[in-house]
């Protein structure tokens, strides 16, 4: 089995911090899965794409849902198709191999060149799910009883796993991973990220929008704090709407793009209304 070689240095469409880049390279060198956690919208899923792009590898994505079973990632034995063929088709059904379909993990193992395997949102699945994959991820091989075959990797894939921390992952699983928590980017890093998405943004507009954004994030009574992707969308909306930078802080236009919860929206609108009322009152007093 060959080690995937090469080191990850980030790619053009994705800003990576030094810490994260280190973690990726450690995981590649130690041949362990890299477990990524972080607030929604910090680019956990994008990381795998960036690694694949930077190292020139194919990316295989396994999206986990609450009903996903570990077995599906390995292979599925399509007994129904085989039965159908035996009754109505003129196919040869004695070859079981034809009815074994590889899952995403199996696909990654059998790929002719090294690949990046992204197991996205592993915490969505059942509590036992990660434990069911321990052996396969450790040994990078599994056995198919129906055909008495063992599937082994030719090239060890780079495994990236993301989690939103909806469930604690089992300790045995964690012990085998390299872990990295993506921090929410500070203003400086955020500017770099925004420059990738909106290269020709007016300076003043950017500053005003960022100020308002971090102000909203710093409020304690907000239930769902806006994230990077929402800020990017908001900037888009501000540009398309042709909003003048001076109005941004005062009016927070298109607030619904940033805040997705009714309670949060109401709260901010109330505060805004309160401010403008007191301002009106002040001017009347004068």
């Amino acid at each position: 089995m060959k080690r995937p070689n090469g080191t990850y240095n980030g790619s053009s469409g994705y800003i990576v911090s030094d810490e994260l880049r280190n973690s990726v390279n450690i995981a590649i060198a130690l041949q362990k899965p890299l477990l990524i956690k972080g607030e929604p919208g910090t680019g956990k899923t994008m990381l795998a794409q960036s690694i694949a792009e930077s190292l020139g590898m194919e990316l295989i994505i396994w999206n986990i849902k609450s009903t996903t079973k570990a077995q599906e990632g390995l292979y599925v034995y399509d007994t129904v198709q085989r039965l159908y063929d035996s009754q109505f088709g003129d196919q040869d059904v004695s070859d079981i191999k034809r009815y074994i379909k590889m899952g995403k993990l199996g696909e990654a193992f059998l790929a002719p060149s090294p690949v990046v395997l992204l197991i996205d949102e592993i915490d969505k699945a059942d509590l036992e799910f990660p434990n069911d994959l321990l052996w396969e991820l450790d040994q990078m091989s599994f056995y198919i009883p129906e055909t008495k075959e063992t599937i082994r990797t030719k090239h060890r894939p780079i495994v990236i796993i993301t989690s939103n921390a909806e469930k604690e992952l089992p300790d045995a699983f964690l012990r085998r991973c390299i872990f990295h928590y993506i921090e929410f980017p500070n203003a400086e890093a955020m500017e770099k990220i925004l420059a990738v998405h909106h290269p020709n943004l007016e300076r003043k507009l950017l500053e005003q929008a960022m100020d308002s954004f971090y102000m909203l994030r710093s409020l304690h009574n907000i239930q769902k704090r806006p994230s990077t992707s929402e800020l990017i969308d908001w900037l888009q909306a501000l540009v398309i709407g042709g909003i003048s930078p001076n109005r941004i802080k005062k009016e927070l236009p298109f607030l619904g793009v940033l805040l997705k919860k009714n309670e949060d929206l109401d709260l901010i609108l109330q505060q805004l209304a309160g401010k403008s009322q007191s301002r009106n009152a002040m001017s009347r007093y004068r």
Binding site: N22, S23, N25, I26, A27, L174, H180
Partner: peptide, 22 residues
């Protein structure tokens, strides 16, 4: 394997990535 880059900072991030899981 020399992954710490023989600096204390490299060592810090290496330790954290390998040892800390939450």
């Amino acid at each position: 394997a020399g992954l710490s880059g023989s600096s204390l900072t490299g060592f810090y991030f290496l330790c954290r990535a390998v040892l800390v899981k939450s």
